[in-house]
Amino acid sequence: MGIGYATAYRTGIIPWEKASRTGLPVLERLLDREEALRPDRIRRAIDLGCGRGAHTKLLLDRKWDAIGVDDVRQAVDTAVRRNGLDDARFVIGDVRHLVHSGVGTSFDLFLDVGCFQGLDAAGRTQMADGITELAQPDATVLVHAAAPQRWPRTSRGADRSDLEQAFRGWTVTEQVPEASDPDDAGTWFRLVLS
């Protein structure tokens, strides 16, 4: 998983960063709701597959106690420098092994902007099981994914059935397309523990 991404970061070919910015207005609305549901407590979040940390910084700016996780050291190093954040805000780790990555426990929110969709079925289940183990009872998972496509296959993509298959014990409560045609930009999914 990390070798292809490490090469992409080294060469500067990182189109997913531009794609993730198109979903920002929808993400902001989704985060508004999550914050309204937890007004009087410290809110803890993990940015899964954080890359260069833009969404981790967004969460921190919105007063979440946030940590980013990515398995590409160069991306994490850039996240620290680029965002002016303490390196304790980032963990070099594999999202398929969250429990043993040193991120802690008791998270309210798991943010995934394009990470789940790139994993195979076994990796998706491992990631979901780790999230379940680290989640507060009222936790939320927000996942942004492109629709599955046959060609060109730059990413596997993911849809509701993929999420329901991996996240046993969770319910998809919302599905928000970024555009009138979800195949154009992707879809946000909101999951809660059942």
Results as ranks from 00 to 15, higher is better:
residue 60 L to K: 02
residue 60 L to V: 11
residue 60 L to N: 03
residue 60 L to E: 03
residue 61 D to W: 00
residue 61 D to A: 02
residue 61 D to Y: 00
residue 61 D to F: 01
residue 62 R to V: 04
residue 62 R to T: 05
residue 62 R to G: 07
residue 62 R to S: 01
residue 63 K to H: 13
residue 63 K to S: 13
residue 63 K to Q: 13
residue 63 K to T: 08
residue 64 W to F: 15
residue 64 W to K: 13
residue 65 D to H: 15
residue 65 D to E: 15
residue 66 A to E: 04
residue 66 A to F: 12
residue 66 A to M: 13
residue 67 I to Y: 00
residue 67 I to E: 01
residue 67 I to L: 09
residue 67 I to A: 04
residue 67 I to Q: 00
residue 68 G to T: 03
residue 68 G to N: 03
residue 68 G to D: 04
residue 68 G to K: 02
residue 69 V to N: 03
residue 69 V to S: 05
residue 69 V to R: 05
residue 69 V to I: 15
residue 70 D to R: 05
residue 71 D to T: 13
residue 72 V to W: 10
residue 72 V to K: 08
residue 73 R to T: 06
residue 73 R to Y: 15
residue 73 R to L: 09
residue 73 R to G: 03
residue 74 Q to L: 15
residue 74 Q to H: 11
residue 75 A to F: 02
residue 75 A to K: 02
residue 76 V to E: 08
residue 76 V to C: 11
residue 77 D to W: 01
residue 78 T to L: 10
residue 78 T to C: 09
residue 78 T to G: 08
residue 78 T to Y: 15
residue 78 T to V: 07
residue 78 T to Q: 14
residue 78 T to A: 14
residue 78 T to R: 14
residue 79 A to H: 11
residue 79 A to E: 07
residue 79 A to Y: 03
residue 79 A to P: 14
residue 79 A to F: 04
residue 79 A to D: 06
residue 79 A to G: 07
residue 80 V to M: 09
residue 80 V to L: 05
residue 80 V to D: 05
residue 80 V to Y: 01
residue 80 V to G: 06
residue 81 R to M: 13
residue 81 R to W: 14
residue 82 R to Y: 13
residue 83 N to F: 12
residue 83 N to H: 15
residue 84 G to N: 10
residue 84 G to V: 06
residue 85 L to M: 15
residue 85 L to C: 07
residue 85 L to F: 11
residue 85 L to Y: 12
residue 86 D to S: 07
residue 86 D to M: 10
residue 86 D to N: 15
residue 86 D to E: 13
residue 86 D to P: 09
residue 86 D to I: 04
residue 86 D to C: 02
residue 86 D to T: 03
residue 87 D to C: 03
residue 87 D to I: 00
residue 88 A to D: 12
residue 88 A to Y: 03
residue 88 A to N: 12
residue 89 R to Y: 00
residue 89 R to M: 01
residue 89 R to F: 00
residue 89 R to W: 00
residue 90 F to W: 03
residue 90 F to A: 06
residue 90 F to R: 04
residue 90 F to I: 07
